[in-house]
């Protein structure tokens, strides 16, 4: 049970976007650069920079959205703030750790991951613009949790599976479950995209590995 309605949730998003429009634009620009970086990884530092950019997005979403904007309306907001801060710390840690790095996954996995990232940057906000009242009632990657989760699931799919990716997948998986609850509680079907992205993060690497064999 969530103690706010869908309209109130989007009014929080709208106010945040209107007041921090410059941050919203920067976040979308940064997300676009991360998508482009996957297409051209000439240096091992590129995925590390992408992970650091993602860490910043999680930190901002946790601090600004949950810690500041949603906190007065939702008693559980500070738990989410801590989870988002923890994910930011994990991303930063994996980004700067000398080993094992963040090697690129198979082309098929990268294709799936990039698709999810584009869904987060373009399809989700575009759909919301149609279903809601347009700008500023649009959730954007790097400021709002749902597209940030989908984008992160997509980016993690573009990396070779291993313990760093498994570690980085834990909180997004929990986020996918929370989004499913939210989809039911607020009757907002678009949030199922987050749950689907989390499921894809678990299932796709296994399915693709089986297929390649």
């Amino acid at each position: 049970m969530l103690p706010y309605s869908l309209d109130v949730y989007f009014s929080v998003i709208a106010r945040m976007n209107a007041e921090l429009w410059w941050a919203a634009m920067l976040a979308v620009l940064a997300a676009t650069l991360v998508v482009l970086s996957v297409a051209d990884e000439r240096s091992g530092w590129i995925p590390r920079l992408a992970a650091l950019t993602l860490a910043l997005g999680w930190l901002i979403t946790g601090t600004v959205f949950y810690g500041d904007r949603l906190e007065p309306l939702f008693f559980g907001a500070h738990w989410f703030q801590w989870a988002y801060t923890a994910q930011a710390a994990l991303l930063a840690l994996v980004a700067v750790a000398p080993r094992p790095g963040l090697p690129r996954a198979s082309p098929a996995a990268v294709g799936c991951g990039v698709t999810l990232m584009l869904v987060a940057v373009l399809v989700m906000p575009g759909t919301e613009a149609v279903l809601r009242d347009g700008w500023p009632e649009i959730r954007l990657v790097g400021l709002a949790p749902e597209p940030t989760l989908v984008f992160t699931c997509g980016w993690l799919l573009t990396r070779t599976p291993g313990w760093p990716i498994a570690l980085l997948a834990l909180i997004p998986l929990a986020g996918g479950a929370a989004a499913g609850h939210s989809a039911l509680a607020l009757n907002w079907g678009l949030d199922w995209v987050v749950t689907a992205a989390a499921a894809a993060l678990v299932l796709l690497p296994t399915l693709l590995a089986q297929h390649s064999h």
Partner: peptide
């Protein structure tokens, strides 16, 4: 007042 009055600063609401 659960949910219904939890509208934050929104003046229209």
């Amino acid at each position: 007042t659960y949910v219904t009055f939890n509208v934050g600063p929104d003046q229209a609401m």
